[in-house]
Amino acid sequence: MAETIVFYTLSVLILGLAILVVTAKNAVHSVVALVMTFLCVAALYVVLEAEFLAVIQILVYAGGIVVLYLFVVMLVNLGRSPEEHQDPRRLSVFGLGLAGAMLLEVAGIVVYSYNRSASTVTAPAAASPVQGNTQELGWLLYTDYLIPFELASVLLLVAMVGAIVLAKRDL
């Protein structure tokens, strides 16, 4: 029962704040709604027993990425949004139509998947020698997924170098 209440509360918050991110006139308001959305998603991860991911979500998303967005919004502050000097609803019918088709597609996939027998659920992975969400995740990351993990670190290094090269005035 408690899980039901928490789920619906968080769902309403996430969806409402996400709509605010998309519709807000001022980009700073969008960023603030975005950070609240990320915090609510982190709470949802706690409900789903993914405590490590909740912490990572707060550290990386709410702490790092959002600050980056806020920084750029402040730097690029135009005082007027690009939508103001033209019809803002120019493409909204088209966009809503495409998004509706997307939702229908996803709904179709969901209905189809849940109508199929549950026998296709994969067998549980080999028992890990450690307990606890963070420990088990770390064990997986450093055994089965060691190469993707190292590749992710290379990706982050490349992104860091790329961002510096792009943002620097004269190298």
Binding site: V21, V22, A27, S30, Y69, V72, V73, V76, S81, P82, E83, Q86, P88, L91, S92, F94, G95, L96, L98, A99
Partner: peptide, 8 residues
Amino acid sequence: LVRRNIII
């Protein structure tokens, strides 16, 4: 699809 501001 709808917004024109690239940051949004």
